[in-house]
Design a protein around this nucleic acid. Structure first.
Length: 215
DNA sequence: ACATTAAGTGATT
DNA sequence: AATCACTTAATGT
């Protein structure tokens, strides 16, 4: 798909300089990705850096037993630092990425990275900021694993998810949630029942409505 | 009506 | 907090 300058400029002119945006539009591709589609698989060699224009991306690692661990979400304007590192080392991906909701992703050729890092101050700080926020999100994830019990993690997870999607209605089964939190379906079901009784959520089949954004 | 998939529950570790 | 075994409820064909 052809990249539309106005559209990109519209969304990114606050952070990136005009000339850079023009270059981005010349050499990048924009793609619509359906909910749940895989963007990046483990072991895949990455030739492009994704930047989220619309929607969100869910980034996970996988362990040797095949358990997926949720690392973080990429939202509007975010880019993935891990992808980045893989590109510059021309290695292969250590993460798995899915589209979360209907998403629009801007793909930037990896070889442009270095050039832009040198030529554009705005690109430098964009990338550095991205590294920084990715790092913070992962630290938060570790923190929550180490110091919070599952009940708290579940609540955080639901609230986070509603935020990212900008929607209090989530299409998630208990099993989906269990997988994201590395737990089992039964345990999640019990905790969900509690949350329902506390009127924090409303449950339907394969759906959750998060009642509390605040608090 | 029947099969399939999601959610609820008691008992056990 | 996890697992087992089983039940009940919602949905698709």
């Amino acid at each position: 798909m052809q990249v539309c300058i106005d559209r990109i400029s519209d969304k990114f002119s606050h952070i990136l300089e005009e000339e850079l945006i023009r270059e981005i539009c010349q050499c990048s591709q924009i793609r619509r990705i359906n909910h749940g589609s895989t963007l990046v698989e483990i072991g895949q060699t990455l030739t492009h850096i994704p930047i989220v224009v619309d929607g969100a991306i869910k980034v996970m690692t996988i362990d040797d037993e095949g358990n997926e661990l949720l690392l973080y979400y990429l939202e509007f304007g975010d880019t993935c630092a891990i992808t980045l590192k893989c590109c510059s080392l021309s290695g292969s991906s250590t993460v798995l990425a899915y589209a979360e909701g209907e998403s629009e992703i801007l793909f930037i050729p990896a070889e442009k990275m270095e050039d832009w890092m040198i030529r554009f101050r705005s690109w430098r700080s964009f990338i550095l900021d991205s590294y920084n926020s990715r790092m913070n999100e992962m630290l938060a994830a570790i923190d929550s694993l180490a110091f919070f019990d599952l009940g708290d993690r579940l609540e955080n997870y639901l609230r986070d998810r509603a935020m990212v999607l900008g929607n209090s209605e989530l299409e998630l089964s208990h099993l989906d949630i269990a997988n994201d939190l590395n737990s089992s379906r039964v345990v999640i079901s019990r905790l969900m029942k509690k949350l329902e009784n506390q009127n924090k959520i409303i449950q339907k089949r394969g759906k959750v409505v998060v009642c509390e954004f605040a608090d």
